[in-house]
Amino acid sequence: MSVASLAGTGRFFRSELLLIFGRRRNWLGLAILAVVPVIIAVAAKVNAPGEDEGGFFGGITTNGLFVALAALSVELGFFLPLAISTIAGDAVAGEANQGTLRYLLTVPVHRTRLIAVKFAALVVFAATAVLTVVGTGMIAGLLLFGGGKMTLLSGTEIGFWGGLGRVAMVSGYAAVCLSALAAIGLFVSTLTEQPIGAGIAVLILYIVSQILDTIPQLSAIGPYLPTHYWFAFGDLLRDPVSFNSAGPGLLSAGIYTLIFTTAAWARFATKDVTS
């Protein structure tokens, strides 16, 4: 690609981001994501959880950064996948539904370029959604409980900046997992002209994957499910950092991303656009 064509794609990419982040509905979604960590922080302040309490909740009163981690683990269960499903389902189906797809393609925008830009924008949205949760979690946590040293899951204490680094790693891991879901959503979005239907389908896929993962008799397929390693980010909070589950988690997300972006491209490249 020449520099000029890359610059041209950059402009289209910015326009795509404006479309996502210029929409009131999406701001509302991000606002809802931001509310959860605040609720967690306030609730912990009002009624302090015991040190023996599970997950990250136990650590909240000792270090505000744990609010961000607690909020992330809570929201990764539903709100974040909901947000990603909605936006990803909308990516192509929304344009098809409105009829704007035919006008993009006749600009012309090459179909491969369209899929690439759509996916890149979804990745940015996934990262933004995670940062919204983690960011508000950290602000609320640090305001109410302060920072200081962080006790890792393996029991080691690290300094505030080290803790911040760990939170950044966990955020990155969550964004990678959500990007894989976005890739699935992008593919589903090329199958239909109903953006809401596509969004719901992706959310259902996510929930079904979660349910199958809890059935002991199906443990053989567990590791192949797209969500199997999503909550493995605890690995990144050990000393030294463990990749026992987080490693396969990144690999799994990478493979799902590759498969479904390719499928979306293959499907869309030859699709008759009759909307």
Binding site: S5, F12, R14, L18, R24, Q98, T100, R102, Y103
Partner: peptide
């Protein structure tokens, strides 16, 4: 083709900006 189609919540000008931005041959 088959009637106009634009993003409902964008202004007329922003809709044209979007089309122009998608055009890699257009001079920004």
């Amino acid at each position: 083709v088959e009637g106009p189609a634009f993003h409902l919540y964008l202004s007329g000008r922003d809709n044209l900006r979007r089309l122009d931005a998608a055009d890699r041959h257009a001079d920004p």
